[in-house]
Design a protein around this nucleic acid. Structure first.
Lengths: 186, 186
DNA sequence: CGGATTTTTCGGTAAAATTCGAAATAACCG
DNA sequence: CGGTTATTTCGAATTTTACCGAAAAATCCG
């Protein structure tokens, strides 16, 4: 993959632009795109040369992608350089990114809310605030719980569920309804 | 809400710090936090004074929150100033943010992929690339479809589903299994 | 309409981030 | 061990973003 075909170039560039939407910077997103399109693991140097990015920047970018868990180092026999590859299965990648987003977005939110709530119970001047914070905290806890459920599901299951189409939402409504029976109202 | 109690201050500050995790900047997140904690709509001026942010910055921030769909303008009789409030129901807010994130993160990705795929069909040198792009495109289309299902569900239903706990994931597994059979009736 | 109030726009500055390239460090080989 | 190659660290330069405050524009009121 020394040379990029036009479609590769286009995808890598566009993916880079999109990176900001996803909380990555352009360069990091480009590196990831290149790895995603490559049939074989790449060295940092190859990436640096092909994308025209400083060698050190590639190093930093690869490290960030590794903290996201979407890139890992592999080695080739007889080559002491590190080679990098990204998760090939897009569903697995989805799961990994979801986990990381939860860790970075949800968990700290819960922490902030919990911390905010300690020591204000019963302060009548904060009654409304406490109510709002409690509601939000409960929400995030529910999200966490749902996440924990979904995380467990293997790719094949996720894929099949996703394909259910309309019957999926009908199923959800039904499940919710059956849950309503025991207790009258909430 | 002219004066902030300590817990309000703490929450607003922490929420501001967290804003970056969510793709907002500190100021915008703080404005939103303040609105969330306020029992009544606030004017831009109140926000500006209370948070110590320039009036014009508040204006810009409120506009951004409006593009996200989480803040809206309301009016008070006999007062020509705009007052602002945020969505109170956290579940509704979740739905709104989800919609916007899809619009900003998923839709452009799909567009990029579709565009990348046009005109390369059959180019053997791109066989592998086409395969990868197709896989990713299919993934995003499935995500879109699931999103469309979930978007429809009313708050009450979402809430109940979320409360199902373990039985939720068991249900999903079951649904997936039934889909595998020749007769997909449920 | 004329004046007062409110909101938005905009240029400039301050702050933050990204990226580079040199230097330091680490890993490896004979 | 000494030399070579690979990787990371780090300060500086560049680019991007955030924020302010003055001015412009819009809205409203009598």
């Amino acid at each position: 993959m020394a040379e990029l075909t036009p479609v590769m170039k286009q995808f890598i560039l566009h993916w880079g632009e999109m990176g900001s939407n996803w909380g990555l910077n352009r360069t990091v997103a480009q590196i990831h795109a290149m790895l995603y399109l490559s049939p074989a693991p790449l060295t940092a140097e190859e990436i640096s040369e092909t994308l025209g990015i400083a060698r050190s920047t590639v190093s930093t970018g690869l490290r960030e992608l590794q903290t996201w868990g979407v890139v890992r180092v592999v080695h080739q026999l007889g080559d002491r350089r590190d080679h990098f590859e990204t998760i090939a299965d897009i569903w697995e990648m989805f799961r990994v990114i979801l986990r990381e987003r939860k860790r970075r977005e949800i968990d700290p939110a819960v922490a902030v809310l919990r911390e905010s709530m300690t020591g204000v119970q019963g302060e009548s001047e904060n009654a409304y605030v406490i109510e709002r914070l409690e509601e939000m905290l409960e929400f995030f806890e529910v999200v966490t719980s749902v996440y924990n459920q979904v995380e467990q599901l293997p790719t094949a299951t996720l894929r099949r569920i996703a394909r259910l189409g309309d019957s999926f939402s009908r199923l959800l409504s039904l499940a919710a309804q059956s849950e309503r029976q025991p207790t009258p109202e909430m």
